[in-house]
Write a protein that binds this DNA or RNA. Structure first.
Lengths: 212, 212
DNA sequence: GTCTATAGGCGGATAGAC
DNA sequence: GTCTATCCGCCTATAGAC
């Protein structure tokens, strides 16, 4: 409970620390519902310092969103690069079914990323803010960038890309709802979780029991 | 701007009026970010009256969520009944592909429902509130009820049911982001919107131009 | 059925010290 | 780089009148 001055930390590190805390708070409470003081407390610093560091609450949210999108793009890019290095689709664009493997890999990368509930929920929040000129604009850009990436770099057809994104949005919902916590308690919940997560089952159930 | 007393209205009607206004405000601002005063103003009544009528902000949100889920279940039930009356899948459960038609019909019913942005966004908000004991609980129940409905009454396999829900979650995201407003402006946006909405294209683009 | 008044607490942002 | 103090405004819920 010491209200002593926090350790003096390089600003880059402090930024990352605040962004992580802000992701969680914005995610759980929404952009309007989150307070800079809650974020400050979560980061272990004073409220005015949060504002000073990011200029405004809105700007802080934009940076939280951008950070999430950057992590996502980076993770997908790495996954795609690895897949290509492994000899991927044998040159040109393969026949139907050729894309199963990369779809699986990307799905796995995605689940790993959104295990971080702050990132998951901040993205979900942004997806409902299409009416906000600045936040909605960023969110649309980010979403379309992912679409473009899987179309151009993976070679997904429009249908494949749409299906891939749809499965991602379902993952968001299941985790946002914390449905994995019902695994084994409700027949429907158990079935849809097994059907959705397959390879990641154990990991997802671990998270369901643990944090937040 | 008259601060005169609102017309005296039967409580059932008033309730529905408030629930509609509350859907919009909760949807746009989130549960924590929405204020009972914003809801009251949107409904054209006083703030204390909103609280008096629903007991608390939390209870109001629960009722907003329940109303959205009820509309969804009712719409799906009607759609399924109509499909069965039309001679549906020829008795037993048909082969693969037999479910295309009912999937299309349910998708259409869903898009019609979430044209109401209040309903769309309130549901999306609830999907991120798995950590809230009461709201999260209701949201999980509602989600599982839909799953159960398409499994048991339509006869979808687990895979079909999952795919169906996933496409629904993608619709949520595209509309939440207001991506249809980018139709014709951005190649990726145009492509994913055409791929996703097909039969409902014109309707969705109309909404994109118009309200909220 | 509907309002006004108001209590008591929390919100973001700024000023200025260390 | 980080804090404390503080302004002014908004929030939920209650009390009580009409």
């Amino acid at each position: 409970m010491s209200s002593a001055i926090s350790e003096r930390i390089p600003s880059a590190e402090r930024r990352e620390q605040i962004l992580g805390a802000a992701s969680l708070v914005f995610g759980e409470r929404g952009y309007f519902g989150a307070t800079t003081d809650q974020i400050a407390k979560a980061a272990g610093i004073s409220q005015p310092y949060v504002v000073r560091m990011f200029g405004s609450k809105e700007n802080l949210f934009v940076e939280v969103l951008q950070r999430a999108l950057d992590k996502l793009m980076t993770s997908f890019q790495d996954t795609i690069d690895g897949w290509k290095a492994d000899g991927s689709p044998a040159g040109e664009n393969g026949a139907v079914g050729e894309h199963h493997e990369i779809g699986r890999r990307l799905g796995l990368a995605y689940v790993n990323l959104i295990e971080d509930r702050g990132i998951l929920l901040s993205l979900m929040q942004a997806f409902g803010m299409g009416n906000d000129a600045v936040i909605g604009g960023r969110a649309r850009e980010g979403f379309l960038a992912i679409y473009k990436m899987v179309r151009d770099q993976v070679g997904f057809s429009p249908d494949e890309a749409r299906t891939f994104l749809a499965e991602g949005m379902l993952l968001n919902t299941l985790l946002g709802l914390k449905l994995p916590a019902e695994y084994g308690k409700d027949a429907c919940a158990t079935e849809i979780i097994e059907s959705t997560f397959r390879t990641k089952l154990q990991l997802v159930l671990d998270v369901a029991g643990g944090n937040a």
